[in-house]
Design a binder for these strands. Structure first.
Length: 561
RNA sequence: UGGGGCGUAGCCAAGCGGUAAGGCAUCGGCCUUUGGAGCCGACAUGCGCAGGUUCGAAUCCUGCCGCCCCAGCCA
């Protein structure tokens, strides 16, 4: 972690830990875990949890385990475990040798189940799924006991063993905890501990045909690993009594579960189910499409690990359901990239400028600063010639007030170059501006005394004879509504897709960019931050992804009217 | 009509009985060879509402109101 990140602020999780430390509940020990299910790619919401869990462990001198919660073989895959590990590492966290899997504990869990059965606290139930639901009761009415609830210990042991052996088909039997069918907390109404699933598991293969449910696996896994603080999201609050019940019945180490509010961001969706749908419906390019809020998508988009960590720190941790404005995230990348990205000039929408008084074959090299925020980044030489490209938006034939750029008869500064004046506008038959004929003032080359003359605007440019043609991908929000899930009856979040979320253009970029390496961050001066795409770039033909635009005061002004 | 949570500015979020931190956004101004960055300033007589306790309440008590979660053999 770099030293210049915002100082960490307090939150209710740390307060709870502080209380434990002063009461001595865990003997000053702090041991957390990040427990993803390998059934999808990690997204920025997970990043918040990762930063919280690893961050707290680090802050209190403890450690954080990585544990895959792989108890449902029908949804999980090694592709996901690989991507999850890569993403956590990229974010800058290290679980060292503490890489665990809930499936590592299947045998222990089975023995724990035997103990509960032996203690008369669990039983094999033969109700169908539908019957279980009926017997569970409703929110306002208590449930009723399963007819199999009072089987003998011997019979339960026999049946459970045969479940494991594979004697029964899927769905025919479950092992249930004997808690309280009248509990106002539905999770306590004899929850299912094991279900029969004749499915191939990505790690245990065909060793098992019974798999533990989340509630039965999670707390016990925490306990086995000696976790002190089991941090999860709000929807598990109702599960805490069951979490506590299991470890109490077993008489094993009892971690403290703590719940916090998951992250939501405007103009995006954050559920794995919905992200998976975008991928499988081909709406996006894959889990790592630069428009996705996945860690891999953000990485490809050009976000940096420290900007994401900074974001997680800034949004804080609390129990209030909230939606953070995407502007907050964008601020975090801009701040990081402003300090570190090399400046270059690239013209996204070119308009040719001919300097009529500039010698035909002359090439002047202008010294350009690589990063005004960091002198050690040095300078580079940029070729300047008679024919240049400037941004089409930087010229207006009939400019409004406050437009500081080029217009007929007006002067403007070319960054690191000369002050030029627009003398003539060349149009095609349809009246489109195709070229500007300008003159340059040779006394105003950057560095000369005359260059300090006041001119309203400074434009970026690129030499037409040296420019490299490159693909640039401009991204907008994936959804056009602040809350994509806010839809009319019968519609889904898919109706809120933003059809303009990706625009692919050809740009003219300065020659130094031909060999730019994938993943390198640049600031295209006056336009935004861009990074070299890791999928579509090839040596000599870079493809740039726009990470985020620069703050644009002019856009704000011109939109106001 | 059951249970579990949560309400502090447009968005996050501190605050824990002594008189509303900070960030983002927004709006002014300065500065600037990026309309970037930076700098300065403004931005809750107010903490969901109503009562009460107290010298003093966002913090304690009571009652309301609003929002979120729970009836998977998902996690």
């Amino acid at each position: 972690m770099t030293a210049n990140e915002a100082p960490t602020q307090t939150n209710f999780v740390k307060q709870i830990i502080n209380e434990h430390n002063s009461s001595g509940r865990f003997g000053q020990k702090v041991h957390t875990r990040f427990p993803p299910e390998p059934n999808g790619y990690l997204h920025i919401g997970h990043a918040k949890s990762i930063c919280l869990n690893f961050g707290i462990a680090e802050e209190y001198g403890g450690s954080c385990n990585l544990r895959f919660d792989d108890t449902n073989p029908t949804k999980e895959d090694t592709e996901y475990v690989d991507s999850i590990k890569e993403d956590i590492r990229w974010l800058g966290f290290n679980w060292e040798d503490r890489e665990y899997y809930a499936s590592d504990y299947f045998e222990t869990l089975y023995e724990y189940a035997l103990k509960l059965i032996g203690d008369g606290k669990a039983y094999v139930c033969e109700l169908t799924g539908e019957q279980i639901r009926e017997y569970r009761g409703t929110l306002t009415e208590p449930g009723k006991n399963s007819p199999h609830r009072e089987r003998s210990v011997e019979e339960n042991l026999d049946l459970f063993e045969r479940m494991r052996k594979g004697e029964f088909p899927d769905g025919s039997h479950t092992l249930r905890a004997k808690v309280d069918m009248a509990s106002p907390n539905l999770n306590m109404r004899d929850p299912v501990m094991y279900r029969i699933l004749h499915a191939h598991h990505h790690r245990t293969g065909d060793d098992w045909c019974i798999y533990p449910m989340y509630d039965w696996a999670h707390g016990q896994s925490d306990s086995i690993e000696g976790i002190t603080h089991s941090i999860c999201t709000l929807e598990f609050e109702d599960h805490r009594p069951l979490y506590d019940w299991y470890v109490e019945q077993l008489g094993i180490h009892h971690p403290q579960q703590i719940e916090f509010a998951r992250l939501n961001i405007t103009y995006t969706v954050m559920s794995k189910r919905k992200l998976l749908q975008l991928v499988s419906d081909g709406i996006v390019d894959g889990w790592d499409d630069p428009r996705m809020p996945t860690i891999s998508g953000l990485r490809r988009r050009g976000y940096t690990p420290s900007s994401i960590r900074d974001f997680a720190e800034r949004v804080g941790v609390a129990k209030k359901n909230s939606t953070v404005e995407v502007a907050q995230l964008e601020h975090c990348v801009r701040e990081d990239l402003n300090a570190h990205a090399l400046r270059v000039m690239a013209v996204l929408n070119p308009l040719k400028v001919v300097l009529t008084n500039f010698p035909e074959d002359k090439v002047e090299y202008m010294e350009a600063v690589n990063n005004p925020e960091d002198a050690s980044a040095g300078t580079r030489q940029v070729p300047f010639t008679r024919e240049l490209y400037i941004e089409r938006d930087d010229f207006m034939e009939d400019p409004p007030r406050k437009f500081f750029r080029l217009a007929p008869g007006r002067e403007v500064r070319l960054r690191y170059g000369y002050i030029i004046k627009c003398e003539e506008v060349v149009k095609d038959e349809d009246g489109n501006v195709v070229e500007l004929r300008c003159t340059y003032d040779e006394q105003t080359r950057s560095g000369m005394p005359e260059a300090n003359r006041k001119v309203k605007g400074t434009l970026h440019w690129v030499s037409a004879t040296h420019a490299v043609d490159a693909e640039v991908r401009l991204y907008e929000q994936l959804f056009s509504k602040e809350n994509p899930d806010n839809v009319a009856e019968g519609e889904t979040f898919m109706t809120n897709m933003n059809p303009q979320s990706l625009e692919i253009i050809r740009a003219q970029v300065e020659p130094s960019l031909v060999d730019a390496q994938a993943g390198t961050h640049f600031q295209f001066e006056r336009k935004g931050y861009f990074t070299v795409d890791s999928r579509y770039s090839v040596p000599g033909a870079p493809v740039f992804n726009r990470t985020v635009t620069l703050r644009d005061t002019w856009a704000k002004i011109s939109k106001q009217k």
